[in-house]
């Protein structure tokens, strides 16, 4: 990890919207093709959910990739070997 995950600028937009990214998948429950992927806080923590936007069926919860900045703060020491002090 680098410091790009610990220091961010303030957004320039006055109001902030989350963009949901369509995946093109089909909902196994209602058959809709309106399925998107986006970051959420859920019972398992901070995840990326792939979810049907029509019936809210969650196809799956995924661990975010580092490049997805979710959650935004990621310690520089992520992945380092632990010492006896942590």
């Amino acid at each position: 990890m680098g410091i790009e995950h610990i220091i961010y600028p303030r957004p320039v937009e006055e109001y902030i919207y989350l963009k949901k990214v369509p995946t093109g998948e089909k909902c196994p429950e209602c058959g809709s093709n309106n399925v998107s992927r986006y970051p959420v806080i859920c019972s398992l923590g901070a995840k990326m959910v792939v979810k049907c936007q029509d019936c809210l069926c969650a196809l799956r919860y995924e661990t975010p990739a580092p490049s997805e900045n979710w959650p935004p703060y990621q310690p520089v020491t992520d992945g380092w070997e632990a010492s006896i002090a942590g």
Binding site: P11, L18, C42
Partner: peptide, 18 residues
């Protein structure tokens, strides 16, 4: 919490960026 997902847009007043 299982039935509920919450979206807090990064950079907003309730998801400030470090």
């Amino acid at each position: 919490m299982r039935p509920i997902d919450v979206i807090i847009p990064p950079g907003s007043v309730i998801c400030a960026l470090p």
